[in-house]
Nucleic acid binder design. Structure first.
Length: 761
DNA sequence: CCGGGGTCCATTTTT
DNA sequence: TGGACCCCGG
């Protein structure tokens, strides 16, 4: 093992640096092995952030580099903030302001601001958000005469960002990467979009990285400067990087080759947005001579939870593989519970939460992690009736609110005259008689003269082209903007924001609005001005808004957390509820249809992420009936349930209603569940065992043969269903029945869940 | 300019 | 089932 006795180090007289205290052997190695490429494979809960911060401290302590020579990259703002705080605390410095520590996008933006001219942008370029981007693409499609219904702008947007994720500029998109959009016109549209962005002096998120790559490739002397500067690179969540990001890292690290990437291939869950798990799997090839250090000691979960998660993830083929371990009491096995439907599932979770509360557990130590956002609703409804405090993570963000975006558009337009999107947004907000007609005229003239809308407007008010009324209104608008722009030089920026909101009539417009929302909107604008005051310049604030679209965290009282599995990555809770473990929902059918085995493995990693969030207790549940898009579907338990090793789980079947389902499943007299196999990716797959302790080991294929379900019911039969009550069978197709229920209308149900009416009576 | 009503579509989300 | 979005009428 490398000892901290490097000759370069003017080692301080301490026997051991304080940040090394308490690190385990592997962590210590990862901290002290400073030179050359290193992959730190850090499993869930193995103290990776600790190792990462210690490593950063060690670099400085050993005088290997100054802060300005270290590039530390994270994915999210939250992670960046955490790293910043912990490093500052570890080193005992008040702040790490000015260090090259931030998200990929923030760091790339910082470089791009300096080198903007190299890609035809001005240094004050605007960073567009997805909404602006979409509006731009819509305009483009309209101009090209492409039917937006057949070829939606959002689809084009995602095609373009996938290309950008892969580092492809329009001229680099090869025939092989072509996609089916507007009869093969996608690349042409991509090109037009990039041109439009340039005239707007704007770029989108993907461009931040892509422009960096373009500059580094076209101007080796610029690249060389940064390559020389960054002696050490630290990268967090490497498994989430896309092609562009990994190219960027490789370029920057190519001189000193001191790059340390931290990640966990088993937690790669963002393939669908361009993340390449291959980056981490191929690390040794990409960085020859790389060392791999595994952090396998888990400090978070009980042996039972860890065993459950490890057993599950071992089913994946595409992984580097590692063996997490922990010591201590085994803890509770993962509890598996089958319920009748989603409502019962929500009730179950609510009851368990209350039981935990009675044992003295706080609500903030519990979380419900769902696969899709739609699943939160049932829990919310239940918690509301129970009076159980909860919070949902996700949802609209502060900077995405209408009024905030309007206010920002004013500020953006002051900052950058070329920002036509901002111009269009506020031209008639508040109403000043400058509607579609005027805008159309401005656009037309602007296009012909190749000028920004603002510049066009400035010139047009000096001509007689507009109606006198519109001309006057536009002149006032232009003059106001010029005045504000002038004031921006002298007036402090928070004050400027107030002036703008006031003089533009925006605040007045909201005051006139007597609706409920208007008050909240005014409140948000006040909050916005307060936020502006915490930055030292308007430009700095706008940069923050563009790159840090995060929600301001509310002071949380004791409440249960409800969120998606994706949103839960990196978090931990004492007790974790994992509902909806049903084939089709989780693993998600669409993921499997679109990505096949790759998709399934990513779903499995998501399950792994979910389980490993739990410190002490994990509850997995599934419903036999799930309402999906308004109609009822019979569901079968997720294959992931069986993949949790026996010894780490405990199955509990519901009495009463669910008992019937279990019986049926075990090959009971209805034999009605054989079509469940069809929702699986591979119909021939074997079931390892049955649920609820019924007759063991049934094979789907065999069951399909022996089943003769349609014999049970015929059209016209009177039946009883536990949920829908009495009804008459309309259509019987195999074991799928269409029944006209007396109370709840026509439904499709599975034969095993209904009984002949007489029998039920 | 607003809202009513019809239609279509339903993973995951950061920057 | 419900929401987002679009079109058209007042």
């Amino acid at each position: 093992m490398t000892q901290a006795t490097q000759p370069a180090a003017a080692t301080p007289p301490l026997s051991e640096p304080p940040y090394l205290a308490g690190l385990n052997q592997a962590q210590r190695e990862a901290v002290e092995c400073l030179d050359g490429p290193l992959l730190m494979l850090a499993g869930a809960g193995t103290g990776k952030t600790r190792a990462l911060t210690a490593r950063l401290a060690h670099l400085l302590w050993q005088r290997k580099a100054t802060p300005g020579q270290i590039l530390a990259v994270t994915f999210t703002n939250k992670a960046a903030r955490e790293l910043r705080e912990r490093v500052a605390a570890l080193l005992g410095v008040p702040s790490v302001e000015g260090w090259w520590l931030g998200t990929f996008h923030a760091l790339a933006a910082r470089i791009l601001r300096r080198e903007a001219e190299a890609v035809g942008l001005k240094p004050n370029f605007t960073i567009l958000d997805t909404d602006d981007q979409l509006r731009l693409l819509k305009a483009l499609l309209a101009a090209e005469g492409i039917d937006e219904k057949a070829w939606p702008a959002r689809v084009l947007a995602s095609i373009i960002s996938r290309w950008k994720d892969r580092g492809l500029t329009p001229d680099r998109v090869s025939a092989a990467e072509q996609v089916d959009f507007a009869n093969g016109r996608a690349v042409e549209l991509y090109k037009a979009y990039q041109e439009r962005l340039q005239t707007l002096n704007a770029c989108d998120f993907g461009d931040l990285l892509l422009h960096n790559l373009t500059i580094f490739q076209a101007q080796p002397q610029v690249a060389a400067r940064y390559q020389a500067q960054f002696r050490y690179l630290l990268v967090d969540e490497y498994q989430d990087t896309n092609v562009a990001q990994s190219l960027w890292l490789r370029l920057l690290a190519s001189r000193h080759k001191n790059i340390c990437c931290v990640g966990d291939d088993d937690q790669s869950i963002y393939g669908w947005r361009g993340a390449e798990i291959g980056n981490i799997l191929r690390f040794e090839q990409d960085f020859p001579g790389a060392r791999i250090i595994r952090l396998e000691r888990n400090y978070r979960s009980t042996p039972n939870i860890l065993g459950a998660a490890s057993g599950l993830i071992a089913r994946n083929e595409s992984r580097l593989g590692k063996t997490l371990w922990t010591d201590g009491e085994p803890g509770e096995p993962v509890r598996i519970r089958g319920l009748w439907d989603g409502e019962a599932e929500a009730r179950f979770v609510g009851e368990e939460i209350e039981a935990l509360q009675r044992k003295g557990e706080s609500l903030s130590s519990m979380a419900i992690l769902v696969r899709t956002t739609a699943q939160t609703r049932e829990f919310e409804e239940r918690f509301i009736t129970m009076g159980l405090p909860y919070r949902v993570i996700g949802g609209p963000r502060f900077y995405e609110r209408l009024e905030v975006r309007d206010a920002l558009a004013y500020l953006r337009l002051i900052q950058s005259v070329d920002d036509d999107l901002a111009f269009e947004r506020i031209l008639n907000k508040p109403k000043r008689g400058l509607g579609d007609a005027t805008l159309k005229q401005l656009r037309e003239a602007g296009r012909v003269q190749r000028l920004s809308l603002f510049e066009t407007a400035r010139r047009m008010v000096q001509t007689d082209e507009l109606r006198p009324q519109a001309r006057k209104a536009l002149r006032d608008f232009v003059q106001a903007l010029e005045r504000w722009r002038e004031q921006a030089r002298t007036v402090p920026h928070p004050e400027l924001a107030e002036i703008v909101l006031d003089e533009s009539g925006y605040t007045e417009m909201l005051k006139q609005d007597r609706t409920m929302e208007a008050a909240g909107r005014l409140e948000n604008l006040k909050e916005l001005v307060e936020a502006i005051a915490t930055f030292d310049s308007l430009a700095g604030f706008l940069e923050h808004v563009a790159l840090v679209m995060e929600n301001i965290e509310e002071p949380s009282q004791d409440q249960v957390t409800l969120m998606t599995l994706h949103a839960a990555k990196g978090l931990e809770f004492d007790s974790v509820f994992l509902p909806g473990w049903e084939e089709g929902l989780f693993p998600n059918q669409r993921a499997m249809d679109e990505q096949g085995l790759k998709g399934l493995e990513e779903e499995r990693r998501l399950a792994y992420v979910g389980l490993t969030r739990a410190k002490r207790r994990a509850f997995v549940s599934f419903a036999a009936n799930r309402r999906l898009h308004g109609s009822w579907n019979a569901a079968i338990p997720s294959r992931f349930i069986e993949e949790i090793p026996d010894e780490h789980r405990r199955q509990e079947s519901d009495q009463g209603l669910y008992g019937a389902a279990l019986q049926a499943w075990g090959g009971g007299r209805f034999g009605g569940f054989d079509d469940w196999g069809e929702t699986r990716a591979s119909p021939g797959m074997q079931r390892a065992r049955s649920f609820g302790g019924g007759p063991p080991v049934l094979e789907v294929k065999a069951r399909r043969v022996e089943a003769a379900p349609s014999a049970a019911f015929r059209s016209g039969d009177r039946v009883f269903h536990q949920k829908f009550g009495y009804g008459t069978v309309r259509v019987a197709e195999g074991d799928r029945l269409t029944i006209a229920f007396d109370q709840s209308g026509e439904k499709k149900v599975i034969a095993a869940f209904v009984q002949p009416a007489a029998q039920a009576g």
